[in-house]
Design a protein around this nucleic acid. Structure first.
Length: 290
DNA sequence: GATCGGCCCTGCCCGC
DNA sequence: TGCGGGCAGGGCCGAT
């Protein structure tokens, strides 16, 4: 389940491999992988061949390959199970290989592998991000992520203040802050000792800042360790898993003692998925917003 | 406009 | 052994 630290690990690995390379062939093996590219797979391939990749950028869980001319980019999202792999051309195809990209100089190829097909790629135009940079038009509504050097804590605090919902819903809302998924939301809330249903607009600026600090810390730690890995679905461009799961405190720890107080971590249904919390450290607020 | 719930999709796991 | 149902979850879209 790739989240921001995992996507950043993938982005940096890809940047080293694809920057300066020219696309020579594109093969779309599953149409759903490019469903957001409305003109379809033939158009997708035709418009990529011959283009040079000049850089690889990221915002939240979206990453994109900037093409020569700096007017367009290939936007990718890993979804729940996507992998962007750099493979020798003679390596056997992965079972869930969806897109293959070959380069003019030959050598290793780029493969988009995705078991559950929640991820995908699309060609998109680059537009101003309002701060002197360029982002794909489909990403412009996404807030800056907590690891972005231009991320402003004041924006995060005011975004929380404007939401009439619970804290976790707000954290998962990519227009409030991007890059946070279920895992890091639970971990950051555990660290900040906040219940997921605490009203987002009821958090003081100081507590909001504290929560943001916990988000940044847990993500930085995961990034330093190569990202979180729960199964073989998340891997870097070389197919290697991260190791951060050994240090998770709440997520996936149902019936395990809370590392802080010893009470057993509980799992509760939340937004058609699960939330993990310590019932003592993260007490249910009276004015909870579920 | 803001918020919320349903859906997409596949593989694994568990119970019957 | 085999089948069916539940679960995992990011983002989009329609309903409220």
């Amino acid at each position: 389940m790739p989240e921001l630290p995992e996507v950043e690990v993938v982005r940096s690995g890809l940047a080293r491999f694809v920057t300066g390379r020219t696309v020579s062939a594109v093969e779309v093996l599953h149409p759903r992988a490019i469903r957001r590219h409305e003109p379809g797979p033939i158009d997708f391939a035709a418009r990529l061949v011959g283009r040079q990749i000049t850089s690889v950028s990221r915002r939240g869980k979206y990453l994109w390959f900037v093409l020569d001319g700096r007017d367009s980019a290939v936007v990718g999202h890993l979804g729940m199970s996507g992998q962007l792999l750099v493979r020798p051309p003679d390596a056997p195809d992965e079972k869930h290989l969806r897109i293959r990209v070959r380069f003019a100089a030959g050598g290793r190829e780029l493969r988009f592998v995705d078991q559950r097909t929640f991820g995908g790629m699309a060609l998109d135009e680059l537009v101003s991000d309002g701060g002197g940079g360029l982002v794909p038009s489909t990403v412009v509504h996404i807030a800056r992520d907590p690891l972005d050097p231009h991320h402003r804590s004041a924006d995060f605090i005011s975004a929380l203040k404007s939401r009439r919902t619970g804290l976790k819903r707000a954290l998962l809302d990519q227009t409030v802050v991007s890059g946070i998924g279920n895992i890091y939301a639970d971990e950051a809330l555990w660290r900040a000792q906040l219940h997921y249903a605490h009203p987002a607009d009821g958090l003081s600026p100081a507590r909001a800042l504290e929560l943001l600090g916990e988000v940044q810390e847990v993500m930085s730690q995961a990034l330093a360790q190569g990202g979180t890995s729960f199964d073989a679905l998340y891997v870097n461009v070389n197919g290697e898993s991260g190791y951060f799961d050994v240090s998770l405190n709440a997520y996936g720890q149902e019936n395990e003692p809370c590392p802080r107080c010893g009470r057993l971590i509980v799992r509760e249904p939340f937004m058609n998925r699960s939330s993990f919390r310590c019932p003592r450290c993260q007490r249910t607020p009276r004015n909870a917003r579920w």
